[in-house]
């Protein structure tokens, strides 16, 4: 078996505090893995570490992406290689229009792949078509990035970026939080349309509900900086019913995909 991304014994700390304490996870091409776990257990830390955020120090272990050392790459290189993070809290960038950022991002990626950059007209055609698919009003193109967007609009904007950038590996960090029921369906549809045998995803969520729409191949529980339990999609239902308390006493589970 060859994984798209393979995380081995990863330890990482923020501001000198160890958050990830030996995390193992393997994700194969085309697979969707869900991660659940209590607040503060390290889910966003894992996403930030994978995306290469600077103040998250990796203190041990390794991450291979398509067999190559991911941790050696700068954040923008990881993005160009096809890693996408839908942020839990998308940041506002006043003065920079959404369309400008999107075009710069798409063209940075195309350049990296040796494709010609899109001009303004071609880009507009493309982005408007993608916006339709996530039911976003084109007026959002000319607003500053995330500025004054509602919580749900910000999340939808993240999914728009994902559909434009067509990553190989996407991390959705609580993309469902703040979405109303209709928006949740739209976002899930957007994600499902992107599902294909090559593209993998890591879906971080607190709610089983999202996993009714985006059906995962595997569910993991992250607690105290480690994966403490892994299972199929039924595990999410069990967690919904029983919470996390019962897991704390469990022995450390074998991580990664169940055999």
């Amino acid at each position: 078996m060859s994984s798209l991304i393979s995380i081995r014994n990863l330890t990482a700390s923020v501001e000198g505090k160890e958050i990830l304490k030996g995390l193992n996870l393997d994700i194969g091409p085309g697979e969707i893995h869900a991660i659940m776990g209590p607040n503060g257990s390290g889910k966003s830390t894992l996403s930030n570490v994978l995306a290469g955020r600077e103040n998250y120090q990796v203190t041990g272990g390794e991450v291979l992406f398509e067999g190559r050392d991911l941790l050696a790459l700068a954040p923008e290189e990881r993005a160009r290689e096809g890693i996408f993070l839908a942020f839990q809290y998308p940041v506002e960038i006043p003065g920079v229009s959404n369309v400008y950022l999107l075009k710069a991002a798409v063209n940075a990626l195309r350049k990296h792949r040796g494709l010609p950059e899109l001009d303004a007209m071609d880009f507009l055609t493309l982005v408007k078509q993608k916006m339709k698919s996530v039911e976003m009003n084109p007026e959002f193109l000319h607003r500053s990035v995330n500025e004054g967007f509602s919580g749900g609009e910000k999340k939808r904007n993240e999914i728009l970026q994902m559909t434009l950038l067509e990553p190989k590996f996407a991390i959705l960090d609580e993309t469902d939080s703040g979405l109303d029921i209709d928006a949740l369906k739209i976002v899930a549809d957007g994600v499902n349309r992107l599902r294909n045998p090559e593209r993998s995803m890591l879906v971080i969520t607190h709610y089983q509900r999202l996993l009714d729409y985006i059906v995962p191949d595997y569910v993991h529980v992250l607690s105290g900086g480690r994966i403490v339990k892994s299972g199929g999609k039924e595990l999410a239902l069990e967690l919904e019913e029983r919470g996390y308390g019962w897991l704390e006493t469990q022995p450390r589970a074998a991580a990664g995909r169940p055999a």
Binding site: A74, P75, E76, A79, F87, V91, G95, V96, A108
Partner: peptide
Amino acid sequence: GEDQLFYCQQRGISAEDAVSMIVNGFCK
């Protein structure tokens, strides 16, 4: 902010281009 730069970098844009982009947006 560092968070704005990281956001742009995560979209494949270098920190340098991100600063230019933000500064130019500010001045437009």
